[in-house]
Amino acid sequence: MRFRLYHLLTLLLLSGNIACGQSKEPWTQEQLLPTATLAERINNNQTDNLLILNIGPDAVIKGSVDIGPAQEKESISKLKAYLKDVKKDKEVVIYCGCCPFSRCPNIRPAFRTLTEMGFKNARLLDIPQNIRVDWISKKYPLAD
């Protein structure tokens, strides 16, 4: 009986952790933009209604604006200033790509800022590993 209770408690704790882990992220699954989709849109010049912002160490992606690492306060101020006059229904895609999502210090503060500012079409570029593996190595369009 004690054995069963122990397992039940472990299960409850684990499921709680998983649920917490999921709800902790400031973005939803639908707000993740696949790299292949963005690359295709850039290659087809379909970026008129799109803002691509780098919030990591470098603006590697073609046509993206370099805001700087969002873990720094100055970068968040720069992000807010840059988006001040942008319409709230504009599609804004942010990306970092330094490291896997679990270790990235930049994506969360940047995405929270977009949400707080009321951007309805905020997207996070889905870079599971890093910008080298998920963008550069795939020969997706790079900044000059």
């Binding site: 470098d58 590697v60 790509g97 490291c99 590993q129 910008i131 080298r132 593996v133 790079l142």
Partner: peptide, 16 residues
């Protein structure tokens, strides 16, 4: 050169 460094290519670095 961040992740665009040729060194990352030469050594096949896929993560730090």
């Amino acid at each position: 050169k961040y992740w665009t460094s040729p060194v990352a290519d030469a050594y096949g670095i896929e993560g730090l």
